[in-house]
């Protein structure tokens, strides 16, 4: 088990190097950022040349990449054009997005699994049908629609919450954005759980448990749910990465200065250090989330073991 985890962690190194290189090349392909720093005016050639030199932009691509990686290993992720260190940006944006993701995942888990279990156990009945229709509706509404509508209703019309999130972004302010972010995945979690439960309800081991005379509650939580959660956990694991990086729309609507917003800014301004730094950390989050999911399989199903 321990060796398995170490092996997996070691495998992350080549993935890390490969992904940073790919992202670096992609941002590089966006073009030279220096001219845009001068706004509508034509860039002053001498000043532009100095800035290019300072940013290593006058070097060939491979040298730029080596220089960048060299800096990363010294803990220097570069600087955004407004003079802020990328490490500072990372330190301010990631906790915010992580809190947002946490809110979203908790909502997904609690609401999604509950609804899934309820409808899975009552397959074909009214409850089941209404849950299915409801999830269908949720899946078909894009995030920016649900985001703006809920923001307007709760924030402006009924004025029960602040429509936007303050820079500190405490959990209480992230409830609505978290719900909006969770909505689509929530529907998927519900449907996955429902199918899985409906399937396992008819499994042999469950009939055995019933025959043994175990209480219904224990049958559902210990036997049925535990085995049915494997596909759901797989989904959530990949979803964590998607939620963190893909929250651009939600973050824009609710004024959350998180990862999505910073990456968007970085792309608009062609700032390679910002984009590469943020995406690299996202890659690591993805890798860790996947590792976690694989380990959770073993927790849920004792038949799975890692050596």
């Amino acid at each position: 088990m321990g060796r398995y985890v170490i092996r997996r962690l070691l495998q992350m190194i080549p993935v890390f190097i490969g992904s940073t290189f790919l992202i670096f090349v992609m941002v590089y392909a966006l073009g030279d950022p220096v001219a845009a720093l001068f706004g509508d005016k034509a860039p002053d050639p001498a000043t532009a040349a100095r800035i290019r030199k300072e940013l290593y932009l006058d070097q060939p691509l491979w040298k730029q990449y080596l220089h960048y990686m060299g800096q990363i290993f010294q803990g220097d992720f570069g600087t955004a054009f407004n003079g802020q260190k990328v490490t500072e940006l990372l330190a301010s944006a990631y906790p915010v997005t992580l809190r947002l993701t946490l809110v979203a995942v908790v909502i997904e888990l609690v609401v999604g699994i509950t609804l899934g279990v309820v409808s899975g156990l009552r397959r074909g009945r009214t409850v089941d049908t209404s849950v299915l229709v409801l999830t269908l509706v949720v899946i078909s509404v894009p995030t920016f629609v649900s985001g703006y509508v809920l923001q307007f209703l709760f924030g402006v019309k009924w004025a029960v919450i602040r429509p936007t999130v303050s820079p500190e972004a405490p959990f209480s302010e992230l409830l609505l954005p978290g719900t909006v972010l969770a909505l689509v995945s929530l529907a998927y979690v519900t449907r996955l759980t429902r199918t899985s439960i409906a399937e396992n309800v008819r499994a042999d081991y469950l009939r055995t448990a019933v025959a043994k005379g175990l209480p219904r509650r224990r049958i559902i939580t210990r036997h049925l749910l535990r085995n049915s959660l494997i596909p759901v956990i797989t989904f959530i694991g990949t979803d964590i990465g998607a939620l963190m990086g893909g929250a651009i729309v939600t973050e824009k609507i609710f004024n959350i200065h998180g990862v999505g917003y910073q990456i968007y800014q970085g792309i608009l301004r062609n700032n390679a250090p910002t984009v590469v730094g943020f995406v690299t950390i996202l890659v690591i989050v993805f890798l860790l989330a996947n590792l976690l999911v694989d380990l959770l399989y073993a927790v849920l199903d004792p038949r799975i073991r890692y050596a």
Partner: peptide
């Protein structure tokens, strides 16, 4: 117990993931 060891490793991996993110925050003036 086998399940417990698994859970321990899972927790360990989570804490690695969380280590980098000290929860920021502050008071609104």
């Amino acid at each position: 117990m086998r399940g417990a060891t698994h859970a321990k490793w899972a927790v360990c991996a989570v804490s690695v993931a969380l280590a980098a993110t000290a929860c920021g925050g502050g008071s609104t003036v």
